[in-house]
């Protein structure tokens, strides 16, 4: 297989003026599946997580995935381990990983609702979340990931971390969760988990 030399890669980078967005090492282009399958050891085959705090990523919006993965890399989105891992990928590679997972079917958890956890959840959903997370949390776009059928453990962690000022994506989420108690967050998390 012919390998572009460093000098050629450098030229391309200089010519098109997008050096930072080339793969970190321009020798060879790694395919979407080659890059993305390495994530499955933690996020499940094709991104369908087996739980609990580890989110399902297969079937999420591509724009959302690109932003989140990039923010991990730059440190804008604090993390335990994702930041360290994403530093190993160039922008094109992040784009490839996001494309791969966005193209996978969404697989909801098989968890069902536990009635007493949920009593107040539909009202909370309407009041705080629905303007962005429509259709019971099934809708999604670059700023609002799908929540229906996501693991409650992850949702709970994500909402708490945002409320406590650790990380919010997007920032305006903060206002929405700022006044929620732990119990309300738990109720919402289980509500979304049980939506399929």
């Amino acid at each position: 297989m012919p390998r572009p030399t460093w000098s050629r890669a450098l030229c391309v980078g200089l010519l098109i003026g997008t050096f930072p967005s080339l793969p970190l090492h321009a020798e060879e282009i790694r395919s979407e599946s080659m890059l993305a399958n390495t994530c499955a050891g933690c996020h499940g085959t094709l991104g369908a997580s087996a739980g609990e705090v580890m989110p399902t990523i297969g079937g999420l919006d591509k724009g959302y995935l690109v932003e989140v993965l990039t923010d991990y890399k730059t440190g804008r989105r604090p993390s335990t381990i994702m930041g360290r891992i994403m530093l190993g990928y160039g922008d094109q590679e992040i784009n490839a990983i996001a494309s791969f997972y966005a193209a996978q079917p969404w697989v909801s958890t098989d968890r069902v609702a536990v009635a007493d956890q949920l009593a107040e959840a539909p009202a909370l959903h309407e009041r705080y979340c629905e303007s962005c997370h429509q259709d019971g949390g099934r809708s999604q776009d670059k700023e609002s990931p799908r929540m229906a059928g996501q693991w409650a453990g992850y949702l709970q962690y994500a909402m708490q971390a945002c409320r406590d000022g650790e990380r919010c994506h997007p920032r305006k989420m903060r206002n929405r969760v700022a006044d929620l108690s732990d119990a309300e967050i738990a109720a919402l998390a289980h509500f979304y988990e049980s939506q399929k």
């Binding site: 499955a40 050891g41 933690c42 499940g44 085959t45 997580s49 087996a50 739980g51 580890m54």
Partner: peptide, 9 residues
């Protein structure tokens, strides 16, 4: 969760 997911993989 690592264990849950890698063994499901």
């Amino acid at each position: 969760d690592w264990f849950r997911n890698i063994t499901s993989d």
